[in-house]
Structure formats: structure tokens, C-alpha cells
Design a protein around this nucleic acid. Structure first.
Lengths: 199, 199
DNA sequence: AATATTTCGGAACGATCATTCCATTAACTG
DNA sequence: CAGTTAATGGAATGATCGTTCCGAAATATT
């Protein structure tokens, strides 16, 4: 009976996500989102509910489309140390690739919203926690396999790696140059290598 | 002949800076800036010119009031390695102190504006460059004094340290807890210690 | 005290913000 | 083909955006 939708919901959400990613929440207007998605006002509000709800949906989309794959690849890598190195390489390559100057939508949102009390802040905090735990798990496994030195605890190393990831995200938004980022990353990775030499 | 100003320009700029720092550029309205500074519209526009000009002034104020001291202390420290360690300690202590969840105004602005082409972006990029150079100088000195190992070049270590600083800034906005940040920092500092042991 | 000069309070500007609403359009069911 | 139901286009909402402007207030000089 009903009229069929003239747009693809996933495609629209993808477009919205990219715009939020590039510009942040406050700097992005509904008008821009309408232009980017091609939807009409009615359709956008009917489908997603509003700006905040759309942003939350965009976050989930980002996690599924961008973040989850990377984290899972690290967790599943037979060599934990290689998994961590690939994790960083992936970030660097992404930063200097097509999507220049985007950084990470989670990092950008974390900075923009800080640690307030809304649903957005809660979600971001949860993501950060989850990534830290993924690092802990991977480092533990690496230490058990003898790939990663025991100089520090898995928790300490995870926090260090997490911090370094965030730093790379910031730098990729300001200065997305491979050499620059690679320098920083290769030094950081020394910490999880048996030899102190750079990669 | 003229009527005297009923406000202190420095105090007003300080208040504006703090608000921008906390909320970012786009999320801060002129009305909020009027409330925070106590100025009237006329006075604010007459004195500072407008929102963007006020933000640029706030950046300079931040650099002079917050950033410059820290960087100079590092450059002037008789022990470069201690200077770097103090630099990080200062950041951590600040993050967990009164000014919780503020992070760093430069980091926040870098994320918010990305690497566009306006005067704000240019200024931020310049600051990042300058801090990197300060690290290069300090590491060079540390290596010459034998305090910092020669495993990597000063440039590489500087980029690594710079990235770690940015990471700590991000984490301080999301999760400003001393233990957490201290873990990350102490691991990072291993890289510039002769022994691989944690601090 | 009178005058000149600057600050200040507040109204007003057009533009844009996120959101709501309704009449119209289109498609599936019967 | 007619009827029902949801999707759509677009006008309109009140609020707020950054900015401008002008009359009133206030002070230092004459």
C-alpha cells in the first residue's frame, strides 16, 4: 500500500557520517546534511529523528564500517605484535590516503564533546574503553607468546598504545604526511619489540 | 576627554579564552561570550573585532599564558631528559587538577578546524611546528649530554613525543585520571631512557 | 561648568539554526 | 482501476546566530 522510499537509508547514513566526520557535530547544519544525503527534510526527520539521533546513528555506522574491522583484525591476528603494528600502519595509510585530514571520527567527537553527560559522550567513552581492552587482550597474548617484552604490564602498554593512537589521529588531521606519522609510530612500536632498535 | 573603559581587557580576554577552550569555537556563541566577559556587545566588538578575531586573540593569550611557560621550561632545563619528563608531568597534573576535561586548546582547535586554509588553521599549524622543533632541540641536547639514547634521530623522537603529547591531550578530555595518564606517559618516557625499565 | 571624545546599553538587522506540519505525490492492495 | 497508506516537497515555525548601529552616559580637558 505505501509509497516506496526514494532513497537508500544506508547510503544516506553513510553520507551523513562522512559530513559529520569531516566537519564535526556543531559545525554541520541540517541543511548541509540534506544536501549531502539528498533527502528531503521530512524524510530525514522521519527516518533518523533529528540531528542528535542522526549523529548517534552516524557513530554506530562509523564503528561498524571503519573501526570494527581494524580492531577485529588486530584481535584475530595470529601474531599479536604484528596485529598491533598493522593496526598502526592501517591508521597511517588511511590518514595519507584518499580521506585526507579526516582523522578519526571518535577522536574528533571526543575532543568536541569532552566528557559531558549526554548519550553521545557516553557512547564515545564506551568506545575508548573497548579499544583499550582490545589492546590489553592483544598485549597479553603477545607477552604470553613471547613476542612482546614484559617490561610493562599489558594495561600500561595498552594505555600507552591507546594514547599513541589518539596522538596519531590528531596529527593526521593537522599534518597528514606519511613520513611524519611513520616516524612517530615506528618509535612507539619499539616499546613492544624485544630489540630496542627502530623498525 | 574620553570616557574610561569599565572593564579590563586582559581579564575579558582571559574569560573568553577559557570559554573557547572548554567549548570550542563553533559551540560558543557571542551571547555566551558576552555573559562570560561581562562586556556589552558594543564593547566586545569595538575591542576585539568579532568572533574569529576574538578567537585568534584567545589563541595568543593561551600560548602566552599556558603554553609558552611549559615549552620554555623544557628548553631551559639543565637536564633535557628531565625537562621532557617535567613537560609530560605538567600536562598530566594539569589534566587532573582544577581544569578538568579542558584538554589543550591547541589540540582541541586542531581537531575542530583540521587543516583548512584560514588564519586560525595557519596559526595552529605553526604552533605544532614550533613545539616539534622544541622537542628536536631538547632531544639533540639530551643525546649530546648522553642522557637520551641514540637509537633514533632527534627528529624521530620529537615526532614521537609530539604525538604522545597530543594523545595525552585527547585522553585528558575523555578520561582525566592520573593513574591512567601516568601509565601511558611512563611507558612513553622509556624510549628516552637508557634503561628500558619504566620510571 | 561646558565641551569634546569615547564607551556603553540595547534595539534591530538579515541570515541561518533545528524542527514541525500539512498538502501533495506515488505505489501497493483489493 | 479505485482506495489506502506511507513518503515527499516545501512552506512556516520560533529561536538563535553574528553583526551593525545609534542614542545615551560618562570622563578628561578647556
Amino acid at each position: 500500500m505505501p509509497r516506496t522510499k526514494a532513497f537508500d537509508e544506508d547510503t544516506a547514513l553513510h553520507s551523513a557520517m562522512q559530513l559529520f566526520w569531516k566537519q564535526g557535530y556543531h559545525a554541520t547544519s541540517m541543511q548541509q546534511l540534506l544536501d549531502a544525503t539528498g533527502l528531503s527534510r521530512s524524510s530525514l526527520y522521519e527516518t533518523f529523528g533529528g540531528k542528535e539521533a542522526l549523529f548517534l546513528a552516524a557513530i554506530e555506522r562509523y564503528l561498524n564500517e571503519i573501526n570494527r574491522v581494524r580492531v577485529q583484525a588486530m584481535l584475530n591476528d595470529p601474531s599479536p605484535r604484528c596485529g598491533i603494528e598493522a593496526f598502526f600502519s592501517g591508521i597511517v595509510e588511511f590518514a595519507v590516503g584518499d580521506a585526507k585530514k579526516l582523522g578519526c571520527m571518535m577522536t574528533n567527537s571526543a575532543i568536541e564533546f569532552g566528557s559531558g553527560k549526554g548519550p553521545i559522550e557516553d557512547r564515545i567513552f564506551g568506545v575508548f574503553k573497548a579499544v583499550e581492552e582490545a589492546f590489553v587482550t592483544t598485549v597479553e597474548r603477545g607477552q604470553q607468546l613471547g613476542e612482546i617484552p614484559h617490561r610493562q604490564t599489558p594495561r600500561e602498554l595498552a594505555r600507552f598504545l591507546m594514547t599513541q593512537v589518539q596522538g596519531v589521529r590528531v596529527m593526521s588531521r593537522v599534518n597528514p604526511e606519511r613520513d611524519w606519522l611513520q616516524s612517530a609510530v615506528s618509535v612507539a612500536l619499539c616499546v613492544i619489540r624485544k630489540s630496542e632498535k627502530a623498525a
